[in-house]
Every structure is written in C-alpha cells, then in structure tokens.
Design a protein around this nucleic acid. Structure first.
Lengths: 192, 192
DNA sequence: GTCTATATTCTGATAGAC
DNA sequence: GTCTATCAGAATATAGAC
C-alpha cells in the first residue's frame, strides 16, 4: 500500500480513537510508518490529512449502512437489520464522534462530510419509514422525518451509554427498546 | 468567590466545550484568573482538578433532571417535561460528552461519576415508565429498563445530530419522534 | 496562598539534503 | 518521495521566593 494510503488509514483510526484534538501528526506518522517529510509531502498539514480521512470514513459509513437499508425485507426488517448490525460498540461511531470535537465543528470543511453522512442516513430512514407507513407497518401517527431522527439519535446515544458503562449491553438495551416502540403492535385498549 | 471555586467552574466550562484532551492547565488558569502556583496549590494537577469539575457537573445534572422527573403529572408528562426542558443544544451534554474522551474513559476515577449519572437517570426513567405501565399509559409490551435506555440514548444522540447540522432543529425533531412513539395512542388496526 | 523562574516533552511545522 | 535537522510555541508540571 502507498504511503499516502497508509497515512489516511492511520488518521482514520486515530480520529476514531482520540478525535481531532487528541491526534498529533507525530502519532499519525508512527502509526503509518512514515516520516515527517513524507507526511508533509503528501498533505499540506494536519487539517488537510484529517479532511481526507473524514471523507473516507464518511463514504465507508454510507456504504455499510446503505447495503443494509437496501436489503430485502419489510421496512421494519430493514431498519431492524441496520440497528442490529455488528458494531464495535465500545469504540463509538467514527462519524458521530467527530461532532464532539470543537475543532471539527468549528471547521466547515471538516463538519460538512459529517453533516452530509448523518443527513443522508436520516433521509434514507425516513424514506423507508414512509414505505412502511404506506404498507400499514407502523402506527399511522408517526412523522417519518422525525422518527428517522429518533433512530439515528438512538444509535448515536447508545454509544454514549455503552462507553459510560464500559459495556456493550447498554447499547443493545437501547436498540431493543427502540425496536419495541417501533414494532407493529396491537394495543390492548380496544373499544369494548 | 474563592480561587478554588473559580478554578473548578472554569474547568467545568472548558471540559464541556473542549473535553479533557482539549483542555490545558494554562487555559483553565486564564479562564479562572488564577496563576499557575495557585492552581497547583489547590489541586494536584489536571486530573485532580478535572475530577472535581466532573463530580460537580454530574451532581448538577442529577439536580436538574431530578427536579423535572419528580414533578407533577402523569408518567408521560414527566418524561415529556424532561425531554422538552430548555437545553443549550449546540453545546452538547456536559456529562455525555465526556464519554467520547479517550482519557476519561481510560480513567476509572473520571468515568465513574459519568457512568453513575447516566445510570441514575436511566433507572429513574425506568421507574417512571413502570408507573405509567401500571396506569395503562404505555403499550403493554414495553420493557421499562430498555425503553429508559432508549430515552437517554435519544437525548444523547440528538446532541450529535444538532452539532453535525449546526442547528438545534434536529434535536427537537428526534425528541418529537420519540414522544410520538411513546405516546399513548389508539391503533387503527382494530378488529373488525 | 500566590508569584515568577525553570525544565522537559510534545505539537505542528519548515528547510534543505539525498 | 523520503530523510534528518531545526524551530517557536504549548503542555504539564516543579522549585523556591514572597
């Protein structure tokens, strides 16, 4: 693999693990097995390299989520497949994590791919919710764009619960709770 | 106010804004209007001062949330009041934010108050959900501890959506979506 | 309790040789 | 393309005077 590739991948890993503020050029070089001169030859500096890494991570995330959301099954089944997919829960979300970084949020260039990825996911979920609504799978009162935001938020927040407790259990609980709220269900308050 | 107090409060603000990794002793001293000698007289170092700040922030969060959850109204109304309370959405959650910090998660001392606060909130919500369940307010199938995790996760994740987009709107959407899923509702699929 | 001086290591680069 | 200096400033303290 090229040095440039190794630098980008090392940066992706470090941004995921330590965020932008916590990642130094030196740490990137060591992880990539590249010298300083090499890094500054291929990239203008830390912001430039971080942007390349964030763009890559964002694209990979869309790829992964897209595959599950475009899969077979009912709307509920596809959303369920997305929620239950294997994740490295204790590492957090490589995209969502960046929103807690002050320097990422302060930079339009760095924030844009994060915003676009999350926005894309939300719209994709909203579309599926609408399909399910049309098919009578969900409670008729729900607003697709709002519930889509709830789904994305639950995933993002579940990482917070898991990392706080040091265990993936909380992530799974929150997802199960969401699926139970979303599930096609028959209420018991039938008219007598 | 005492120098020690000013140091703690300045640290609370900086941890909220920039996290542990992004906060330097120097920045704390400047924000508190205290010299280096002063800071190291009152606290052993950055980890010690951060711990004092995190304990303070955690206690304040429990105070705020507790007041709303102990308020008047039905279970749904109290949960709704908690979800809809005024927040500085774009600043993120001062407690949850810490879970994305590698040094906080790596330190048992720093992570403990975060874990306890989130755990306390979840249990408190689970209790209220159980009350509501007993009163017939919610769909009978829900599991209080799971849905409580979903509620906490939605709040935490809603901050992510808001910060990604640079607007508080996404936070409100996700919360409305959750409330609509949680709401006592009558399904249309009544037996004919 | 607070201040200034000093120390070591890291950060984020630039310069120029190979 | 990669390497080795070199550098100004920040991070995280310690020491000792006041």
């Amino acid at each position: 693999m090229s040095t440039s590739e190794r630098l980008i991948e090392a940066t992706q890993e470090l941004l995921w693990e330590r965020g932008y503020v916590g990642t130094s050029p030196k740490a990137i070089q060591q992880a990539a097995g590249a010298g300083q001169g090499s890094m500054y030859h291929h990239f203008a500096g830390k912001p430039d390299l971080a942007l390349a890494a964030v763009l890559r991570t964002s694209a990979e995330m869309r790829e992964t989520a897209g595959r599950l959301l475009d899969g077979p099954g009912s709307a509920y089944e596809r959303i369920s497949a997305y929620l239950l997919r294997g994740r490295e829960v204790l590492r957090g979300c490589p995209v969502g994590r960046l929103t807690m970084d002050p320097e990422v949020v302060a930079s339009d260039a760095l924030r844009a791919p994060v915003d676009e990825t999350i926005g894309w996911l939300r719209e994709r979920l909203a579309g599926i919710l609408q399909e399910g609504l049309d098919a009578g799978e969900f409670a008729p009162g729900i607003v697709p764009r709002e519930v889509a935001a709830t789904i994305v938020a639950t995933v993002q927040g579940s990482y917070v619960l898991a990392r706080a407790s040091g265990s993936a259990d909380a992530f799974d609980s929150a997802v199960r709770g969401l699926l139970s709220l979303l599930a096609p269900h028959v209420t018991t308050d039938r008219p007598a």
